[in-house]
């Protein structure tokens, strides 16, 4: 198991945003997380990637206990994430956005030679279909490309486990396909992926297993077919809220 989440709880005051959630992800799979707005998906990501400390529970990555470890340390271990609301380094070039990842994980003083770092960044840009945007400022990119930049920048840390928070959120169907194509390629390159997604079409197509959260609690886990037939899921999620977003 590359990731084992055990009985994680995260509270904000009286609100239990993540309520005793356990799941594990095996190496090489694409694991999906779905749930209505405010179900606690992003909060769960924040806890796993070290942005929040859980109130209780533990997280293991490649067998090592990483509960409460800092995000930058986790990135160096091979666990990184993207943001639902993208956070590109707006005032920097697309290439520099990726170079930051490479310097930060491989070393600033030693690490890769400059030529090697640039080559590596270009490879990833090509992979994400952004090479033609290499030298423009990130602020000049349209939303769809920013979403791919977000993934490319995370890939530049050379993750073993990549956690994507709604990578297709807010995109047109064409842009969505482009992003999901990148996600599929990421998986083929051997990186394990955990993905939060609202769009059912997208997540049913790409994931082997799916976990459903509602009000912070895990209400189901299984293959896409199992999930789409699960009574509780249909009641909590597919029935009403699904239509709002898709």
């Amino acid at each position: 198991m590359i990731l084992e989440v055990d009985k994680v709880v995260k509270r904000f005051g009286g609100l239990v945003a993540v309520d005793n959630v356990s799941f594990s992800v095996s190496e090489g799979e694409i694991f999906g997380i779905i749930g209505p707005n405010g179900a606690g998906k992003t909060t769960l990501f924040n806890v796993i990637t070290g942005f929040y400390k859980p109130d209780s529970g533990s997280i293991r990555f490649l067998g090592e206990d990483i509960t409460g470890m800092k995000p930058n340390k986790l990135a160096k271990l091979g666990l990184t994430r993207t943001w639902q609301i993208v956070k590109p380094f707006l005032g920097m070039s697309v290439l520099d956005n990726l170079l930051v990842s490479i310097y930060a994980t491989k070393g600033v003083i030693y690490g890769m030679s400059e030529g090697e770092a640039v080559r590596r960044a270009e490879e990833i840009l090509e992979f994400a279909g952004l090479l033609h945007r290499r030298d423009v400022l990130a602020e000049a990119l349209p939303h769809g490309e920013r979403k791919r930049l977000e993934i490319a920048r995370a890939l530049a840390t050379e993750p073993k486990l990549l956690m994507l928070d709604e990578p297709a959120g807010g995109l047109t169907p064409t842009e969505m396909d482009e992003v999901m194509e990148v996600v599929r390629k990421v998986r083929e390159s051997g990186v394990t992926v955990v993905i939060i997604e609202h769009n059912m079409r997208v997540i049913m197509n790409v994931c082997e297993r799916i976990m459903v959260l509602n009000f912070g609690r895990k209400i189901a886990e299984g293959s896409p077919e199992e999930i789409s037939r699960n009574e509780e899921v249909i009641k909590a999620y597919l029935g009403e809220r699904f239509h709002v977003r898709s």
């Binding site: 930058n72 990184t80 994430r81 943001w83 956070k87 590109p88 990842s101 930060a104 920048r153």
Partner: peptide, 12 residues
């Protein structure tokens, strides 16, 4: 540009 994004890609 963004402290959280920097943290998430490994910046101390």
């Amino acid at each position: 540009e963004d402290e959280d994004a920097a943290l998430s890609v490994g910046v101390d």
